[in-house]
Design a protein around this nucleic acid. Structure first.
Length: 920
RNA sequence: GUCGGCAUAGCUCAGCUGGUUAGAGUAUCACCUUGACAUGGUGGGGGUCCUUGGUUCGAGUCCAAGUGUCGACACCA
């Protein structure tokens, strides 16, 4: 078999993926084995693969393939999310490009377009996951809006409503004026902005007695128009909704305002001054304008003091006609100076930020603005559309969360569900302890429509379908003649997360069909791999749903990945253009190379600084494996006796593999996947290729490679197979390719199903590995001498072992191995080191290499002198420790003993070094 | 503002319940066009473990304060 000297991933990756699919190697059915279940965090149905996915999906695939090779029944369920608001926004945009406005379409027409878009773009990302090698059970592919999932969502809504956990009511919600929908608190992100703080004049509407004004501590404003209070705000346009001014009753500056009335500038409405200790005396002037319709805290004040809420905006955050009406009403009720009033008609229909600019200008011109200052503020914006949200009073559906928090907090706190890294337990607890009700209705069409029907006479019923709704409606209204057409279904859809919180259950049909074989077998799932940014959106809510509907956690472990950043630490983003296209990377480095590049620096929970050079490292590793394979498969086998060196090498490497397996098991148990990969990387590159293969490799005689003995050959292939299996979860493609080529395989066989079970390592294994480490140290020392003296690797040298009671006995075959690895012609035991030789110490054992003319006495002396100084320094620190009585008294005997040994060894080394220097 | 994480080689990070004058990968330097692999081999250099105190016989590791940095949450109109 002729093999190219370079591994070419594109030749093999597509081939083996198809092979895995053809042979149904990813598919899982309940059986007697232990299940290992992972549900994918469903990507947006119309999304495309980005680096964050690559990280996330690679980790899942590693865990799944690892479990599969342990003999578990691994089941990784893929699927996509309908992403209500994001997808609807995309569809609206696309329609806009075609000149179609959403408002011109009926719900049915719009949904037709949305489904068309979904079918056109849906599933692209799932295809891309195949390029990455993901071993999902594709027959199970689900969608949050497919029939099973949709029915599950509706069933849960009805159930929660009937339990009294879902209610409908008017509340202050986060309104997205671009998407024209309410949002949950979690969908609001705060952005730092440079804004202005406007100080506006609110003139007194009545007379203040002179003594009240004169009282000490008051800060009084007065101009030719009279007395006025100053109110600071970032949103001057909202004065149109002002219904009160509020001061802190203990604020000395504003005592004179108590019990009076002020005039809202521009608007002309006369409003009372109320008192509440909510107001911060230190902020601004201590005077707060109260606009209950447009601020959460003002809403609270409005409730408390029974104030009217004047909604000044339309749904798209343009100024409503209502402001003009309210002004007319106000002006009719009280007489106010003309100069304080501007007719509000001019602002009607204006966009909110235009209005802010205009009203600030108008007020300044009218002398109603005291001053304007720069101000840094954090503005709540819609996570999806990016526009500032508008607090708005609105009728919505809510889920009561206290009960959910009560069932979801304990299991995480007591580690029934384990978080990696554990720091997220704090974040989780904090959120659950301060939880608010979840606004679950969205003014969108793309999503699960709320199963509530309104009766013609008022009131509503909640039911799983129209027929059931009709029955309930007839009962409720007492009108047995009620017809379907008399009922009107709620127009709103549910929050996307109201379907994804059921994902681990609904994927196994556990909502519609409780206790079925699949849900009983696969649930709880094993590991969830996701980003900490959706800990509240998704993780916490899945835990709630899990306990509410299965009385069990949805998963046992949560692995939080970090954010993928570029090598400068910047978040990858489209606008920065610093995000590589994963498919392009796969084309260039192979999927295995990209997976390795991703995993090399991805400790759980830390952000990862992604650098293409890591993929290059992955590709190089592939090439290394490939070439090791070429070497081994190129050997010609003969039935000759196994050399002692090879006997030793095979025994050693077998032990090494057992030890490595234990290390890997530990890494996997702790989810330290990048460390596991690094362990295998070094095992393959350094130990196997660098040491083992070099030890057993047949020599060349007269330019011809010798044959290898069968025992060594067989052992080597077996080692290779174990290494491939260890590596398979990380690099599925090359390991399959080589596993298939290593031995004759039956059709349909795969490394994926070739379980890896290693015997435990023993103390003998550890001893043998330590012995080999000793040999490696000697080899390295001889190589260093070559390097320093510029002696060609081909030139043979002689090693002398200075015999001594402490000189370690090399294991059988050790000398032979040593000679081969260090290219020695002999290893002689001597009583005294030769003159003109370079010497070195391994532990306390002394070795030297006679160099004849090549010896540079000066350099040698310098080297030995430096070493002597180092050891003397070391000895000094050890001796100091041992002279400290308190150390000898207090430290454990074993520690003291070890220090004594170090002292003795150091002394011995020093003596040997002095001898060597003298001998020069 | 409240809470939390992190700070170790140029870079990215290990370093477990304190106990060899601190390790890996990568980068860098020197040498090597050897017969699996130059996407390679061999060897080398590189660290006041953020600062200051404390506990201890002993601190990279534990405690406190500070500095820097990142994040979560809460926000002042």
């Amino acid at each position: 078999m002729e093999l190219a000297s370079k591994y070419n991933p594109s030749d093999v990756e597509g081939k083996w993926y198809q092979y895995w699919l053809d042979n149904k190697l990813f598919s899982s059915k309940p059986d007697g084995r232990e299940p290992y279940t992972v549900v994918i965090p469903p990507p947006n149905v119309t999304g495309v693969l980005h680096m964050g996915h690559v990280l996330n999906e690679t980790i899942q695939d590693i865990l799944v393939r690892h479990a599969r090779m342990e003999g578990k029944n691994a089941c990784w369920v893929p699927g996509t999310d309908h992403a209500s608001i994001a997808t609807e926004a995309k569809v609206v945009n696309r329609l806009a490009e075609q000149g179609i406005k959403k408002s011109d379409l009926t719900r049915e027409e719009f949904l037709k377009h949305a489904w068309a878009w979904t079918e056109e773009h849906g599933g692209i990302i799932l295809k891309q996951l195949r390029r990455l090698g993901c071993s999902c059970d594709w027959d199970r592919t689900a969608f949050t809006m497919d029939a099973t999932r949709s029915e599950s969502v509706i069933k849960v809504f009805v159930d929660l409503y009937r339990k009294g956990l879902i209610y409908r009511g008017v509340r202050m919600v986060n309104w997205d004026p671009k998407a024209l929908t309410a949002l949950s608190d979690e969908e609001v992100v705060y952005k730092e902005e440079h804004t202005k703080l406007y100080y506006m004049k609110y003139y007194l509407a009545d007379t203040v007695p002179a003594d009240a004004v004169a009282a000490e501590g008051n800060v009084v404003h007065k101009d030719e128009r009279g007395y006025y209070a100053v109110v600071a705000t970032t949103r001057p346009e909202t004065i149109m909704g002002d219904v009160a001014m509020c001061i802190n009753p203990d604020d000395p500056k504003n005592q004179w305002l108590k019990g009076h009335k002020v005039i809202v500038p521009v608007v002309g409405r006369v409003i009372p001054v109320i008192e509440d200790d909510y107001v911060d005396i230190e902020f601004g002037t201590g005077c707060l304008k109260v606009t209950p319709a447009h601020d959460v805290n003002d809403y609270m004040l409005g409730e408390k003091y029974n104030l009217e809420a004047i909604d000044i905006f339309n749904d798209d955050a343009t100024l409503s006609q209502r402001i003009a009406q309210a002004q007319q009403k106000a002006l009719a009720e009280a007489e106010v100076p003309q100069q304080l009033v501007i007719a509000l008609d001019r602002y009607v229909g204006m966009e909110r930020f235009d209005c802010r600019r205009r009203i600030a200008e108008d007020m300044t011109a009218a002398g109603l603005m005291e001053k304007i200052e720069d101000y840094d503020n954090k503005i709540g914006c819609s996570e999806r559309t990016g526009v500032p949200i508008e607090p708005k009073l609105s009728m919505q559906w809510f889920l009561k969360m206290q009960h959910m928090a009560d069932i979801a907090l304990p299991p995480v706190m007591n580690d029934d569900i384990q978080f990696y890294p554990t720091k997220y337990k704090n974040t989780y607890r904090h959120w659950l302890e301060n939880i608010k009700d979840w606004c679950i209705s969205r003014q969108l069409w793309w999503g699960h429509r709320i199963p509530a029907w309104y009766l013609p006479t008022g009131g509503f019923v909640v039911a799983e379908n129209e027929a059931e709704a009709l029955t309930l409606a007839r009962q409720k209204s007492g009108n047995a003649d009620l017809q379907p057409a008399d009922l009107r279904q709620d127009e709103d859809a549910l929050d996307t997360w109201f379907s994804s919180w059921l994902w681990p259950i609904s994927l196994f049909d556990g909502i519609r069909n409780p206790g079925n074989e699949e849900i009983s077998y696969y649930y709880p799932t094993a590991d969830l791999v996701t980003g900490p940014d959706i800990i509240f959106f998704w993780v916490a809510r899945m835990i709630m749903a899990g306990y509410e509907y299965q009385q069990l956690p949805p998963f046992r472990h949560v692995y939080f990945t970090g954010i993928v950043r570029d090598k400068l630490g910047r978040k990858m983003s489209k606008s920065l253009g610093n995000s590589p296209d994963p498919l392009d990377l796969i084309d260039r480095f192979g999927a295995d190379g990209v997976r390795m590049g991703m995993m090399l620096s991805a400790p759980a929970g830390n952000d990862i600084l992604f650098d293409e050079s890591l993929c290059e490292q992955g590709r190089n590793f592939n090439n290394k494996i490939w070439n090791a394979f070429r070497l081994v498969k190129g050997w010609e086998v003969a039935d000759t006796a196994q050399p002692e060196a090879a006997q030793l090498a095979t025994a050693w490497f077998a032990a090494k593999l057992r030890l490595a397996d234990e290390e890997l098991a530990d890494d996997f148990a702790k989810y330290r996947l990048s460390e596991a990969l690094m362990t295998i990387y070094r095992l393959f590159w350094d130990e196997f290729s660098g040491w083992y293969l070099e030890m057993v490799k047949p020599a060349y005689i007269d330019g011809k490679p010798q044959h290898i003995d069968r025992a060594t050959y067989d052992a080597t292939l077996a080692f290779f197979e174990v290494l491939l299996k260890m590596l398979h979860p990380f690099m599925p493609f090359i390991t399959e390719e080589l596993w298939q080529a290593l031995y004759d395989r039956q059709p349909g066989q795969s490394i994926m199903r070739d379980e890896l079970h290693m015997p435990h390592a023993t103390d003998d294994d550890r001893k043998l590995c330590a012995d080999i480490e000793g040999i490696k140290e000697i080899v390295t020392a001889v190589r260093a001498i070559r390097s320093q003296k510029n002696i060609a690797p081909k030139q043979q040298l002689t090693l002398e072992v200075v015999a001594d009671a402490d000189t370690p006995q090399l294991p059988r075959g050790g000398v032979e191995a040593l000679m081969k690895m260090a290219n020695l012609d002999a290893v002689n035991t001597v009583a005294e080191k030769s003159a003109g030789s370079a010497s070195f110490l391994i532990g306390t054992a002394e070795y030297d290499v006679p160099l004849g003319d090549l010896i540079d006495l000066d350099a040698e002396r310098k080297k030995l002198q430096a070493e002597l100084e180092r050891v003397e320094g070391f000895l000094a620190s050890v001796t100091k420790k041992l002279q400290n009585e308190r150390f000898v008294q207090n430290a454990p005997a074993a520690v003291v003993e070890m220090e004594r040994k170090k002292q003795a060894d150091a002394e011995q080394k020093i003596a040997a070094l002095r001898d060597s220097i003298a001998a020069l």
